[in-house]
């Protein structure tokens, strides 16, 4: 009896092992068989574009992939063009997309039919920081003072310049407004560089530029950072200006402005791809992240280097989506609302 049981159990193990084996081999074996298209749902020159092209450069330089990778910008309709393209490419393993917050904001604000669930999450590369900046000629020493001044001036007096409409910059502005009860004039511009220059030229009172967009003007003594919209301070301790490093910037929460916001820079694939195909890209981007060039890029842009994969990543995206719905509902940014 025992012998029989053992035999049955043994053969079952063997069978499962045999069944699992080809799969394991497949998981190892899948590789792109043709050129991979890397889609950027934003224009040339922006943050997502830079990151995607840097990744492409690293992959090419270190020969991390046998096939070639081409970068394609599909920026139309606040990125909807790119997302719809990937949504339509169901099951195509030769297409990946880098996302920014428009993964959530575009379908909500425009009503274009897509959702991140139409795509397959691959890997989070990093999170992009937002910093509250003002011109150095202004007297505010902290975020607290600045908000107090905005409140004292009354609604629609202070101008916040930002990138795009109903996207991350305006959502952060709306979150600040919801928290403090004051109202900014939000002025949308095309790119982060333009926004920073508008602030340097004193055409706006503040911005929430990404570090990389404003760092040159900070170092040039034209802009000053008030606080960072991350629950934790940035880890980079190398001095950026004569006196300050990124880690010297207080968090907004510390300064009495309890708003946090980080922007996803992550990779997705079309829906209906196999786990082996997803695994290939996870490995690929792990290798990218291990290169010195990538680490350099992270430090220069003062990125938050959280990097999730698999279920953790999907959960994070789902949480973030819920938060965007809530923020945008409160700000009345949702289409047809």
């Amino acid at each position: 009896m025992r012998n029989l049981f053992e035999r049955v159990a043994g053969s079952m193990v063997a069978m499962t092992a045999m069944a699992a084996l080809p799969q394991a081999v497949l998981a190892q074996a899948w590789e792109p068989t043709k050129t991979v298209e890397f889609i950027i749902p934003a224009g040339t020159g922006g943050g997502a574009d830079q990151m995607a092209r840097a990744a492409q450069g690293i992959i090419a330089k270190h020969k991390l992939m046998k096939q070639a990778m081409v970068v394609v910008n599909k920026a139309g309709g606040a990125g909807a063009e790119g997302f719809l393209d990937v949504k339509g490419a169901q099951g195509d393993p030769h297409k990946i997309i880098i996302t920014l917050s428009n993964l959530f904001t575009t379908p909500l604000a425009t009503g274009v039919p897509f959702n991140w669930r139409d795509l397959t999450p691959v890997k989070m590369l990093a999170l992009d920081q937002f910093v509250l900046w003002t011109n150095v000629s202004k007297p505010y020493k902290s975020a607290k003072e600045y908000i107090a001044a905005a409140k004292a001036a009354g609604p629609n007096k202070f101008k916040m310049a930002g990138t795009g409409a109903k996207q991350e910059d305006q959502i952060i502005t709306a979150a600040i407004e919801q928290l403090t009860g004051t109202k900014f004039i939000y002025v949308p511009f095309k790119g982060g560089g333009d926004v920073a220059v508008q602030l340097v030229g004193n055409h706006a009172d503040s911005t929430v530029n990404n570090p990389i967009e404003a760092v040159a003007h900070w170092r040039g003594g034209k802009l000053k950072p008030l606080c960072v919209f991350d629950p934790k301070r940035m880890p980079y301790k190398t001095k950026v200006t004569d006196t300050m490093s990124w880690s010297d910037i207080p968090t907004c929460k510390e300064s009495g402005l309890d708003v946090d916001y980080l922007m996803l820079r992550g990779i997705f694939m079309p829906g209906g791809v196999t786990p082996a195909q997803v695994q290939y890209y996870v490995e690929l981007f792990r290798k990218v992240q291990a290169t010195p060039e990538w680490k350099d890029l992270m430090e220069r842009g003062a990125f938050n280097q959280t990097s999730l994969e698999g279920k953790e990543y999907a959960d994070w995206v789902a949480r973030e989506e819920a938060r965007h719905i809530q923020l945008m509902k409160a700000a009345r940014f949702i289409a047809g609302q």
Binding site: G45, Q50, I212, V215, A216, R219, G220, K222, R300
Partner: peptide
Amino acid sequence: LGGLLIWGLQPGPL
């Protein structure tokens, strides 16, 4: 401009 940033050059007054 993107190229400059990737190469590690920060455009700006400095």
